[in-house]
Design a protein around this nucleic acid. Structure first.
Lengths: 139, 139
DNA sequence: CCTTGAACCTCTAGTCGCTGGAGGAAGTAG
DNA sequence: CTACTTCCTCCAGCGACTAGAGGTTCAAGG
């Protein structure tokens, strides 16, 4: 069972140039080619690509993904390292959610007020500028 | 009370070249200059910049922020227009939050499962590789 | 006043993670 | 065998910064 680059792209829901880009930066190994030079992928590569895509979706940076992929084969301490990476992203996501909730509430209030025919003083700027809503855990 | 570009950068927790970049793309107005040509900012600009930084932190694109800033700055605008823009951003925020919630749940499960230490029980990579856990609501 | 050193100026180029186009070759369905 | 899609490489560009070179201005201490 082998995939053309396009079939792989559909399978993993990734764009074709993105696959070539991943090969270029060494995140995917260079696959075998047909007589005419076209790439042919196997199911294992498809899994690896799905893993990469999923991790990117989760907000992992390429280097973190490279780490995770390397840790896949490693024993014992791997788990702690992977856990640390996941925890970092979890904290970041939770902070983002808190701030989004604050902004959402403020926008909702504006829409409601608008529905009542009065566009009063806008507090969106104040909401977003508020230090207390800021989580200072940038990576 | 006026800020040098460096003071403004510290105040808003933004790097100096970023401020100049924002001026370049018209997100911040060109401020008055000293006799010698150095930029001098007021507190209002500091608030605007803080707003921009927090919105960027939340993942809003520059163009979206430009619109939000117009929204916050024009309370006398047509109610319908304000409502439309606010609603669109509200939908965007709610979509982001749903997606973040899915990612958070997934990461939480990963951390919890990983936290039990045994390598044989580490399912982080498995979790990440499992496409069924993927949140399919990309914008 | 004068010196010193930090902070400022402009300009260019580089970063990350893709994305798209040009121009042409290879694969495939009828 | 033709027509059409997909593939190839190479290169340029995107958004949103970020860093560096090389020079100027500001503010504080002597």
């Amino acid at each position: 069972m082998d995939f053309s680059i396009g079939a792989l792209a559909r399978e993993a829901e990734v764009k074709v140039p993105t696959i070539r880009y991943y090969e270029q930066i060494g995140l995917l190994a260079a696959p075998p080619r047909t007589e005419g030079g076209q790439r042919r992928y196997d199911a294992e590569t498809a899994d690896r690509l799905k893993f990469i895509r999923h991790a990117r979706d989760l907000g992992f940076e390429i280097e973190a993904i490279r780490e995770l992929l390397e840790l896949t084969g490693a024993p014992e301490r791997s788990c702690a390292a992977v856990d640390a990476i996941a925890r970092r992203h979890l904290e970041d996501i939770e902070a983002r959610m808190r701030r989004l909730a604050a902004l959402r509430d403020e926008l909702r209030r504006m829409v409601v007020e608008c529905g009542h025919g009065r566009v009063s003083e806008c507090r969106v700027l104040h909401t977003l500028a508020d230090h207390r809503l800021c989580a200072h855990d940038h990576h």
